[in-house]
Amino acid sequence: MTEASASAATSGSSTSRARMNIGEVLDRLRPDFPGVTIPKIRFLEDKGLIKPERTPAGYRKFSADDVERLRYVLRMQRDHYLPLRVIGEHLDAIDRGLEPPPIDPVVPTVPQVALAADGLPSAESFQRRDQLRISRRELLKIAEISEELLGELERFGLISARPGTGHFDSDALVVARTARELADFGLEPRHLRAFKTAADREVGLVEQVVAPQKAGRDPAARARAEETVSEIAALSVRLHATLVKIGLRSR
C-alpha cells in the first residue's frame, strides 16, 4: 500500500473504501505488538471486537478503523491487563459516541515478560530474575481472579507464595492470569494439573543434562550451566508449542 493510499485510508469517506487483507494488518501491528498473530486477530473477530468486511469468496477485508480498534484492544490488554469483556464495553461506548472510562493505573506496575519475536519465551526470559513482590490481595486484583480460584491453584501446586514472605512474584501473576483466561473456556485448575506434571518432567530432564556442569566447583562451569538451562528451557517450550500446534492441525 502506497503512502497516498495509507493516508486516504485514515481520512473521511476514503476510510470506508481502503481495505487490507489480514497479512497487511499484521504487518501494520507487529512493530508495536511483536507477539500478535493471525490466529489472535481471528480470535478477536470471533469475540466481536472487530467486524471486517467479507468478500463474496469469504476473505476478510479490514479498514483503517478496524486496525485502530485492534491497536486499542491490544494496548488495553498489554498495558492495562483489561479482560476482553471490559474492552468490548469500551469499544461499544466509543461506537455510540461516548468516551470510554478513564483507565486507572495498575499498582504495582508489572514488568513485561520478555518474549521472542515469534511470541515464544526466549532464553533471556528464563534468566530474568525480577524483584517483584505482590501481596495476596494485589495478586487477586491485578490478575482479576477470585479467592476461590487462587485457592484451587495453590491446592493443585500451580501457584505458591515465596517461602517465608507470603508474597507472590511475576511468574505467579502470569499463571494466575492465564488460569483465569483458560477458565473462560471451561478449564478448571484440576484440569491444569497435566500442565504442571509435564513441566516437572521437563525440569527433571533439563537438570539431568546440566548436572555434571553444576557438580564442579569451577564458577565458569556453573555459569555455563545456567546459560545451558535457559537455552534448553526455551527450546523445550518451542518444541512443546509446535507439537501442540501440529497435533491440533491433524485433527
Score class of each variant (00 low, 15 high):
122 S>T: 02
177 R>Q: 15
207 E>K: 11
159 I>A: 10
104 D>Q: 09
188 E>I: 12
173 L>F: 12
126 F>K: 04
133 R>T: 03
148 E>R: 09
138 E>L: 03
231 E>H: 12
174 V>P: 00
103 I>V: 15
120 L>P: 01
155 R>T: 13
183 A>F: 06
211 A>K: 12
103 I>F: 00
199 A>S: 15
187 L>F: 15
120 L>W: 05
106 V>M: 01
223 A>E: 09
202 E>K: 08
124 E>C: 02
185 F>W: 13
147 E>N: 12
115 L>D: 02
198 A>M: 06
200 D>E: 14
177 R>F: 01
127 Q>C: 04
148 E>D: 12
142 I>K: 04
154 E>W: 02
192 L>R: 01
111 P>L: 12
139 L>T: 11
116 A>M: 03
195 F>E: 01
202 E>H: 13
233 A>W: 05
112 Q>V: 10
184 D>W: 09
191 H>W: 03
136 R>C: 07
209 V>E: 13
133 R>V: 03
218 D>R: 14
141 K>V: 13
214 K>L: 13
146 S>N: 09
214 K>N: 11
153 L>H: 08
100 P>T: 13
224 R>N: 03
200 D>Q: 11
206 V>F: 02
189 P>G: 09
100 P>W: 11
189 P>L: 09
160 S>R: 14
143 A>F: 08
104 D>N: 10
120 L>K: 06
152 E>P: 03
206 V>D: 07
169 D>E: 12
126 F>P: 02
182 L>Q: 09
181 E>R: 11
218 D>E: 13
178 T>R: 11
159 I>T: 06
180 R>N: 09
188 E>G: 05
157 G>C: 09
211 A>H: 12
170 S>R: 14
228 T>E: 07
128 R>E: 12
161 A>T: 03
101 P>W: 09
142 I>P: 11
193 R>E: 14
233 A>P: 03
170 S>A: 15
226 E>A: 06
209 V>I: 12
109 T>G: 05
132 L>R: 04
103 I>D: 04
141 K>F: 06
189 P>T: 05
212 P>W: 07
162 R>L: 14
115 L>G: 00
139 L>H: 01
228 T>P: 00
156 F>Y: 15
197 T>N: 05
138 E>R: 08
173 L>S: 01
164 G>Y: 09
102 P>I: 14
177 R>K: 15
116 A>K: 08
108 P>R: 07
196 K>C: 02
138 E>S: 08
220 A>G: 05
224 R>E: 09
233 A>R: 06
133 R>L: 08
158 L>W: 08
230 S>C: 10
169 D>R: 11
148 E>H: 06
